[in-house]
């Protein structure tokens, strides 16, 4: 194997881990501020100017907090569950091109860890494995709220796996590839060539599924604080809980990248402008996640299931059929 390739990959992995772990922290700060402003509040104000160092304070808190493993939990599983959540989130990032390729010191860097030809499939698969985090953590916690949360997590993930898969099938049919680079290149011609215009239904379905899989409002039922405390995270403290947290926010970022890459033209032609445009799109989608949290109420678990199986899935299937028919003629 090429040593340079190995070094490059390791460096990319380290950068990815550091950047997105930190981003998860900033994500919380950003979320708290945005929600506060939308509710006529100030949000965090005391740690540094405008509490910009809140992430440091939270980090110190999480790292120094006592690591509690309650008495009746299934120890090994309880301990491994947060790692699964965080690990799967970052593993999924392996197939995401975060930026166009660029050349540095004469060396061409591909800001993707591995451009595998089954990229989308891989991302969907690894994200699906992320289910095991909440599921195992919830079941091992010896806590009723955690158990309910685990059951909800399982049902939501399995159900919306179907919707996200089917909704992406139509774009995949159009592009004819599973690599996200190919998706990007397919839409490189400009705003008019974005997939969102040719597959608006698939876009909406995928965004809904993304909300469900990241467990964000209005589908925040996996860890719905006012019903089941913190769900699977109830019994966790300190950095173990922090890993769940990082996993959740990393997932939000990655899914934002995926949405931007598949439907919103990605980094376009690969120019600097395109790269900045990608960051802008990702930021907007992330903001949208927060925005909905301020504006919308949660739906019930049964409504969510009903929506998935009786509404979204049929629409996705119809969308595929129509896409196929259009492509045939």
């Amino acid at each position: 194997m090429d040593t340079a390739y190995l070094i490059e990959t390791v460096i990319k992995i380290v950068i990815l881990l550091l950047v997105f772990s930190a981003l998860a922290g900033f994500g919380t700060y950003f979320e708290r501020k945005v929600l506060a402003f939308m509710q006529r509040r100030l949000g965090p104000m005391h740690v540094g100017p405008y509490s910009l160092l809140q992430i440091a304070a939270d980090g110190v808190k999480l790292f120094t907090k006592e690591d509690i493993v309650p008495q009746n939990v299934v120890g090994p599983i309880f301990k491994i569950a947060p790692v699964i959540t965080a690990a799967t989130a970052f593993m999924a990032a392996a197939a995401i091109p975060f930026m166009p390729s660029f050349t540095i010191f004469g060396y061409e860097v591909h800001p993707i860890i591995s451009d595998i030809n089954v990229g989308i499939l891989y991302i969907l698969g690894v994200m699906a494995i992320g289910l095991y985090g909440p599921l195992l953590g919830g079941m091992a916690s010896a806590n009723k709220w955690s158990l309910i949360s685990a059951a909800r997590a399982a049902s939501v993930f399995i159900s919306y796996e179907v919707v996200s898969g089917l909704s992406l099938l139509a774009p995949i049919m159009m592009v004819g590839s599973l690599s996200l680079i190919d998706f990007n290149n397919y839409q490189a011609a400009g705003v008019g060539s974005w997939m969102i215009w040719s597959q608006p239904v698939a876009f909406v379905l995928f965004v809904i599924a993304a909300f469900a899989e990241t467990g964000r409002t209005p589908f925040h039922l996996i860890a719905n604080d006012h019903e089941i405390i913190d769900g699977f995270g109830t019994e966790y403290s300190g950095m173990r809980w922090g890993l769940f947290f990082i996993g959740e926010y990393a997932n939000m970022f990655f899914i934002s990248f995926v949405i931007a890459l598949i439907f919103l033209g990605g980094f376009g032609d690969g120019s600097v402008g395109g790269a900045l445009a990608l960051l802008g799109k990702v930021s907007f989608i992330f903001f949208f996640f927060l925005w909905t949290r301020a504006a919308w109420p949660d739906v019930r678990p049964d409504q969510l299931m009903w929506l998935c199986w009786k509404v979204l899935m049929p629409i996705a299937v119809v969308n595929i059929v129509i896409t196929g028919i259009v492509m045939m003629f």
Binding site: V34, F37, R40, L42, A295
Partner: peptide
Amino acid sequence: LFVGLWVVLREMFKFDIHTVQ
């Protein structure tokens, strides 16, 4: 749904903060 989104966004930009520190 968009009415809700609009309302909170409007408030964000108005920046009419009521917090007493």
